[in-house]
Design a binder for these strands. Structure first.
Ligand SMILES: NC(=O)c1ccc[n+]([C@@H]2O[C@H](COP(=O)([O-])OP(=O)(O)OC[C@H]3O[C@@H](n4cnc5c(N)ncnc54)[C@H](O)[C@@H]3O)[C@@H](O)[C@H]2O)c1
Ligand SMILES: NC(=O)c1ccc[n+]([C@@H]2O[C@H](COP(=O)([O-])OP(=O)(O)OC[C@H]3O[C@@H](n4cnc5c(N)ncnc54)[C@H](O)[C@@H]3O)[C@@H](O)[C@H]2O)c1
Lengths: 241, 241
DNA sequence: CCATCTTTGTGCACGCGTTCACAAAGACAT
DNA sequence: ATGTCTTTGTGAACGCGTGCACAAAGATGG
């Protein structure tokens, strides 16, 4: 059993830096919006503003894909949408299974943003026998017993875990054993996976704690600025026995 | 109106690198689990394995907080839990509002992981008049008209946006104007906020697209390995007119 | 055809984050 | 007290990501 590697293979895939890959979906979203407004071309400056990034960074990102711009004009919106989609693998269909159809899993199943980008919910899976057969978002929930068959029959390579934390590792192992090689984990646990399997995590609690850290810092600075006297420094609190 | 800065102030807050701050919640979770099992001390090696990170990185992270370990023994679990909690600002209560009580917003409201770490759902807010007064997760949903009063009355500084993308920027502006300085955004949009406001985003669609990229790459490598003949190289596809 | 103007593509420098490797610190046994 | 053994804390090297700044490319107008 490999030790739980975080995510990010750190290997530069096909010469495209991981940081760039993470921004491509952002560019794609901005470009899709432009496309819907029938804007023919866009400059790196405009697109960068729409995506909320530095324009030099955006140009460098695109340079990894190839020279798709025209100097003095900008980028052809439609063409760029196609190129990024192709690079991200969105020109093909990705069947996805969601495991754990509770509050969150049901919300994910109902989420329209899935289908819009080539992702298709192939099955909803839950361990609760009472859930089996019940339709969620128009799809009948299937029991965990069927997991391996579902993965195999549908050629699923991407799985979403929305079970309680305690069940996540076990579910993960079954998914991987059945052939899944990419996992999006919503459960607050570190998943151990063999090499070759990618795991990305979404953790609400972590995000909030990061915000709280900065929030506290802001409050501290404010207090320091208003009451500019007797800063007691960094003395650590009492050390327990 | 400031241009939509992504997130991460890039400024090193109180000497603690942003990358370290992002890992502290991970360590805290692992430590809490150890604490519940009444484990008194833990070595950097063990804790690093539990958190899924390199042990040298973990030690360096902790060194930013101070010298809380004992050489030859390890770290006192309880003490470390306290120190990290304090550093993250989790020793105080953070009232949070959730705006947009649809599929996702309701799931978030029902999520137990909120309260467990000092975050308290102070109010649920939705624009739909039909939702007003309805209880979700034991809390009555309030109408958007009340937003400013709710923020002010409860001293809320952290807001969660779970509205459709089209409404997110407007909701964001109202939150900020009312005094919110940290925002967790689930809507797939780039939010523009003034300096001093932190935004973090959770985007399911982006995570899936990143997974799809690597998945495609794996499939490509596999095909290349099996059929080792006539690699047509990196010739770009047909250029549209 | 030439001049001008816009915008791309990228060389380069810098800073942050990661990891190795090891000296110093302390526990523990004798 | 002394020696051994474990584990921390950190100096140093390295690699990745970011952003500046500019030359080259091409459009556009005369
Ligand atoms: N609800 C949220 O907003 C939210 C936010 C962040 C993280 N999370 C995390 O997401 C996960 C799900 O949250 P939730 O609120 O939907 O919980 P939930 O209890 O509502 O749903 C969990 C579902 O998983 C099913 N399940 C349990 N064990 C299973 C197994 N072995 N195989 C398949 N299915 C199994 C249960 O039957 C249940 O339907 C939890 O780990 C939670 O911490 C939730
Ligand atoms: N459901 C998911 O799993 C999921 C996943 C990722 C991202 N998202 C994003 O999260 C957001 C919410 O998703 P959802 O599935 O819950 O959508 P939803 O349509 O079920 O819920 C949206 C809610 O927001 C309310 N609303 C609309 N405008 C508002 C305003 N101006 N002020 C306050 N409330 C307002 C609506 O009344 C509705 O109750 C969307 O932006 C979606 O793209 C959802």
């Amino acid at each position: 059993m490999a030790t739980g590697r975080n995510h990010r293979p750190a290997t530069r895939s096909r010469g495209i830096p991981e940081a760039t890959v993470a921004r491509l979906p952002l560019y794609l979203r901005a470009l899709t919006a432009l496309s819907e407004r029938s804007v023919p071309t866009v400059s790196s400056e405009e697109l960068a503003a729409a995506a909320g990034v530095n324009s030099a960074k955006l140009r460098k990102d695109f340079s990894y894909l190839g020279s798709y711009g025209t100097r003095g004009v900008g980028y052809d919106v439609e063409y760029l949408v196609y190129q990024i989609s192709r690079e991200l693998g969105l020109t093909q269909d990705w069947p996805v299974v969601i495991v754990g159809i509770g509050n969150l899993g049901a919300a994910l199943a109902n989420y329209g943003g899935f289908a819009s980008r080539g992702f298709r919910v192939a099955a909803l899976i839950d361990a609760d026998p009472a859930m089996a057969g019940k339709p969620v978002a128009g799809i009948a929930v299937q029991h965990t017993d069927e997991l391996e068959r579902i993965i195999s029959d549908n050629g699923v390579s991407i799985g979403v875990i929305a079970t309680p934390a305690g069940a996540a590792q076990q579910v993960c192992e079954r998914l991987v054993a059945a052939g899944v090689t990419s996992i999006l984990n919503f459960a607050p646990t570190v998943l151990s996976v063999p090499d070759g399997v990618d795991v990305r995590k979404v953790d609400l609690s972590i995000e909030l704690q990061i915000l709280a850290f900065h929030e506290q810092r802001k409050a501290g600075e404010e207090a320091e600025a208003s009451a500019r006297k007797g800063p007691d420094g960094d003395m650590p609190a009492v050390m327990p026995a």
